[in-house]
Write a protein that binds this DNA or RNA. Structure first.
Lengths: 202, 202
DNA sequence: CAATAATTTTAATGACGATTAAAATAATGC
DNA sequence: GCATTATTTTAATCGTCATTAAAATTATTG
């Protein structure tokens, strides 16, 4: 999940990154549980045993906190996508792997992932960036579908709408999954099949 | 879409209800477009050619505005469900009809429907009520699946997870659909098939 | 251990937007 | 048309957090 070679990193910087990452997961948890406006910085801080003001050592403001949560979400999605592409045998298999990996990350140790409900209230530059990442991810998924149609593993379909349908289902998970490991196992077991059941060429 | 017999209603009350309904749709539009915290009452008022203070003639406060938006959303879903049950021939057919009707309402004249992202910030009593409606709707959908499994039109599956998957996809629509009629037509045409494609018993 | 840097806290401040009250306007019914 | 009721506006007020500055604490390094 890490980018490039950070093996020989300043230990201070490393601690900073680790703590900030913990903070982002705490924030994601609060946002998913209480909504954005219902989450005060104190809520997030409480989860970390800190005071609200301490958060400002890690982020410039609340908007940036959301922004970083969304970057994390995009990272996780991209990672799952790349791994699936690396390992997939054909279009359908790659789609199924992508779904499995992304879901595993979401409900597993990488999580929680913040539901992207507040993109509009990001500052323009951040919003543009997040939307761009989101757009690219959707495009990558649609490309998987097209690959599957081309290689005959997936029945012809409207890839745009099919992508919207499947990604929507995925995006909604953080809205109802709140960390119960038993439920997590069930999601990982069921969702990839359910979401790809309608795709296979007969 | 109306409840019971309001034929002989006080015209003043009727105007009130009509205007408030217009208000709720304007609010839903803002919430979906700008997020809850990003939406000021002035935004909603502007859409109606009113001043923000005028909204308080129709709702007690901003929370109640969201609450009423969610009640509307629940109404629309229930209406689609009841109509599908009334008209459906078997389990699968009823599921497909429900999907079609609900989507038609969402992207059509009944819309926009507010995405339910801020349930947690409702006041406890309202939250409880909305969650209860939402729970009942999910249960009704799962019952459709079970009916289909029983009558052989739907292949056996985990109805809870299948329901979560399909409803999530539905719930996410307001996040990316913003009123373009061409897109609306495409959603209505494609989504019911896509979402039910994996269900049929082979 | 001393000195410096990193992290957190305490204690204000401030802004933004929700909310309210009273006044003004528009609609309705007799 | 007058009186009453319904609706909207204007003009404050008010609270809630987000945010900041300075001080205090904790960690690191030579």
């Amino acid at each position: 999940m890490e980018s490039s070679s950070l093996g020989t990193e300043n230990p201070v910087d490393k601690r900073f990154r680790v703590k900030r990452d913990r903070m982002l997961r705490a924030a994601a948890r609060c946002f998913n549980l209480k909504g954005y406006s219902g989450t005060s910085l104190k809520d997030v801080a409480d989860l970390l045993g800190l005071t609200d003001a301490a958060l400002y050592y890690y982020v410039r403001n609340k908007q940036e906190l959301v922004y970083l949560c969304y970057l994390r979400a995009a990272d996780v999605g991209r990672e799952a996508m790349q791994r699936a592409i690396r390992e997939g045998r054909d279009g359908l298999d790659t789609v199924q792997r992508y779904l499995r990996y992304h879901i595993e990350y979401m409900v597993g140790a990488e999580g929680p992932i913040a539901i992207m409900s507040e993109i509009p209230s990001l500052k323009p530059e951040h919003r543009k960036q997040v939307l761009e990442l989101s757009r690219k991810h959707s495009a990558a998924f649609e490309a998987l579908l097209e690959r599957g149609i081309a290689d005959g593993s997936i029945a012809p379909c409207d890839v745009r709408m099919t992508g919207n349908a499947i990604m929507g289902s995925l995006n909604w998970i953080p809205k109802w999954f709140h960390g119960d490991p038993a439920v997590a196992a069930k999601i990982v077991e069921e969702f990839p099949r359910i979401l790809s059941a309608g795709l296979a060429a007969r």
